[in-house]
Write a protein that binds this DNA or RNA. Structure first.
Ligand code: MN
Ligand code: MN
Ligand code: ZN
Ligand code: ZN
Lengths: 143, 143
DNA sequence: ACGCTAATTGAAATGGGTTATCAATTTCAA
DNA sequence: TTGAAATTGATAACCCATTTCAATTAGCGT
């Protein structure tokens, strides 16, 4: 029995509802994707090149977008590329980014998260996702 | 005396500090930019095409990036394009975005801003800018 | 005012990430 | 098993933004 029973079931449910097919490529990509917390299409492409050198980059993109629609993944534009977050990993975090050297620090702050919910509620919104990025200079680049 | 005395002074200060020049094009773009709350490079390009049909799009991009460095503007990737916010117009604000109907609510929350500073300080960063976007469903789209 | 040098410009080419196209292949329900 | 419909991989197209480069211009020292 596979380790990712639940996610595979979720995907197959989505496929069934939309007359989509469960292909060898989708299985391959799903397996690789679920091992990650978050990954880009290019990274996944290079990882999978070993298992199947003929797997196309377009298929990776198509499949990751499919995962988003099925609720398995969540796209997050980061810098120039798109990160696809594995929703089944619970580790939400935000980012501190040094505009000088590119250093990135991940952080989590539940007070901020709570205040975001309050702001949303005050405006009648229900938040599904969010992005918080702080740009500045790291300690090394301040001099 | 121009209406945008303060912003022009800020720009000229930045130019002086970096051996940059005050050109006809930069003056033209500054005037048009300061009339907006936020605008894309393409929009500005079309607006200014009437005043100077030879003004190049590359110059618009270069100048808007210059404005960002001088602190007059703030770039915000929104949808597929980049919005350049006029900092003097509204001051800083963040966004609540409905993923269903596209409704956008601007908000400001100084508690969140303060906590951001704390997170940054704890990691040795000095924040220059940030972006906070909350995606979800507005009250109308929740049904 | 003049001349020099470095910054700036416009037009066009280039870039990077993503999506569209399309003929060949594969899935899966009948 | 069969065949319509979905999928695939290779590649072209996209789109916004940046880079290139020769010609022009700004602005300092004289
Ligand atoms: Mn967060
Ligand atoms: Mn803010
Ligand atoms: Zn740094
Ligand atoms: Zn809505």
């Amino acid at each position: 029995m596979s380790k990712h029973q639940k996610e595979m079931a979720l995907l197959k449910e989505h496929l069934g509802k939309h007359q989509l097919k469960y292909t060898r490529q989708r299985e391959l990509i799903l397996d690789a994707f679920l091992k990650q917390e978050h990954i880009t299409a290019e990274e996944l492409y290079h990882q999978l090149a070993r298992k199947d050198p003929h797997l196309g980059l377009a298929t990776i993109y198509r499949t990751l977008n499919l995962f988003c629609e099925a609720g398995l993944a969540q796209a997050r534009h980061f810098g120039t590329q798109t990160q696809y977050d594995n929703v089944s990993h619970k580790g939400h975090h935000d980012h501190l980014i040094c505009t000088e050297c590119g250093k990135i620090v991940e952080f989590e702050n539940c007070d901020i998260e709570r205040l975001q919910e309050e702001v949303a509620a005050r405006n009648g919104f229900v938040i599904k996702t969010h992005r918080l990025e702080l740009y500045g200079l790291c300690s090394r680049c301040q001099h």
